[in-house]
Design a protein around this nucleic acid. Structure first.
Lengths: 123, 123
DNA sequence: TGTGGTACATACAAACATGTAAGTAATGGC
DNA sequence: GCCATTACTTACATGTTTGTATGTACCACA
């Protein structure tokens, strides 16, 4: 759900694909770090720097980008406190919290699949 | 879930991210056409050419690619009939069918979100 | 005056995903 | 022999996502 060029078939296809509610939903969750962020924020409100510490490999740029699109998509709420040094807190919206039970099922399914896939590779 | 170069941070991050069952699941569904294909095949077994007709904008290449990774991921089963011209049928695996109820919930959620997003844009 | 911390922003580069165009094998029907 | 059909494959081009490196504003504190 980032900005796209309005160009040729690539975007045209995207528009028609996004008409599918399911695809729309999965695209909203599809960023590399979004689900992990969702999971952390499900437990509690967190500051930018706290999130950064949680995912030792994420860069500040990526964290910013993912949080921004999640904010635009109505998944997280961003609160800026006018202090110095700055303090910014992120928390899930109600919308995102509605997802929790669904994602939990999907996670169970994913876990099962992953085990199967690993067995396959092991043999 | 395609082949990747084993390179630098990009892959390293992927490996640690994929450790999350939920991320694993969403990555499996993340291809542009996969959910639409899943939806069609949920109704009935279909031939390659039938699928192509269903999605007027998909190219043969993309359809092939998406079906291949779905097959590798255990979402679809591919049956080749040794005829000329060739006939190939695709159907969902049990694994994929287990997803149906979960995806249906996710689709409902997506529909709701999409309406909200559109209202936002309209104003 | 200089340093430190927070939460970013910007320019650039690499890797990946998707799309375009053209070609292939096999064989039945003309 | 030639063409049509089906389900692909290959080489190439375009677009998007992720990562690297560096810079910025703000002000308290030393």
């Amino acid at each position: 759900m980032a900005a796209r060029k309005q160009n040729s078939t690539y975007s045209r296809n995207e528009k028609c694909i996004i008409d599918c509610d399911l695809t729309f939903a999965v695209y909203m969750l599809g960023g590399r770090w979004k689900l992990l962020i969702l999971d952390k924020l499900a437990k509690r409100k967190m500051r930018f720097s706290e999130l950064k510490k949680e995912f030792s490999y994420i860069t500040e740029r990526m964290l910013t980008l993912q949080l921004r699109t999640m904010e635009q998509d109505g998944l997280v709420k961003r609160t800026v406190y006018a202090e110095v040094p700055p303090r910014v807190e992120y928390e899930l919206t109600d919308t995102a919290r509605e997802l929790a039970p669904i994602l939990s099922q999907l996670s169970d399914w994913g876990g099962k699949q992953r085990k199967i896939a690993q067995q396959g590779t092991a043999v």
